[in-house]
Amino acid sequence: MTPATGRTLRKILAQYQKELLGDWLQTQLAASTLRPDLMRENELREQSRELLALLQSAAQNGNLEQTDGPEWAGIREFLARLSRSRAQQGFSSAETATFVFSLKQPLFTRLRTEFAQDAQGLADEMWIANNVLDRLGLYTTEMYLKGREEVIQRQQREMMELSTPVVQLWENILALPLIGTLDSERTQVVMESLLQKIVDTGASIAIIDITGVPTVDTLVAQHLLKTVAAARLMGADCIISGIRPQIAQTIVHLGVNLSDVTTKASLADAFSIALKRTQAKLPPQMGTTS
């Protein structure tokens, strides 16, 4: 009887790589989980070939019980890359893991031929092969989820940047129409784009319009005040406009102190006061004749 060492598994992987690849591709191409709309056949062939080669070299040098050992680094890296690209291509996590699991069938078929006379040996080797592929499949799913997380994070960042436009209303006057709520992360994005625009345009007044901010609680007010303070450090004054009656009420009830900041009910009011202030600030030779 052959001891359960994975010796035969290693032998099969080394000797029958080409045949295994052929069988495996056939299974994959026939499977209902095939997605010809997302991936071409030659790409699938190339990925299958690479995985088999990496599996063979890892199995040859490494411990079959521990797929987190250094010998398995190459195949783990490959699977991580594959999962991420498949997540971005639009494969589901099940489809991505199935890629690894589907290798079981051709591999087990080979093992069965090798152990035609030895049921115990067959069971032992199949158990080892099964474990290896299960672990690699689970690793693939884990990496797939990380890939999805990256996509979500990127989209969140992009959305945040899209939702905070800073526009120049007039010479020296910027407007920042805020829509939605302000958390600390978004406040940083808002501050960054506002301050950068102050540098780019040399504006001395920024109007922060909060018409589109549904509620102003203590935290949101704090974020607003931080933005005002940061703009002031850059030499620009802020006016907060678009304060609806119920927001004015909450601000007072919460005891938020906005007394150091100019506030106006409407963007139009804020704009007119900004125009007055910037005109007053023009150096004498640029102002109207006196």
Binding site: Q188, M191, E192, L195, Q196, I198, V199, G202, S204, K226, A229, A230, A231, R232, L233, M234, G235, A236
Partner: peptide, 24 residues
């Protein structure tokens, strides 16, 4: 004051009240 420095100062809790500021 650079934008990144201004943001950090505010987060630090230091808004240099009583000091006048200008862009350049």
């Amino acid at each position: 004051i650079q934008p990144a420095v201004a943001i950090t100062l505010v987060e630090l809790g230091l808004s240099l009240e009583g000091v006048r500021t200008a862009l350049d």
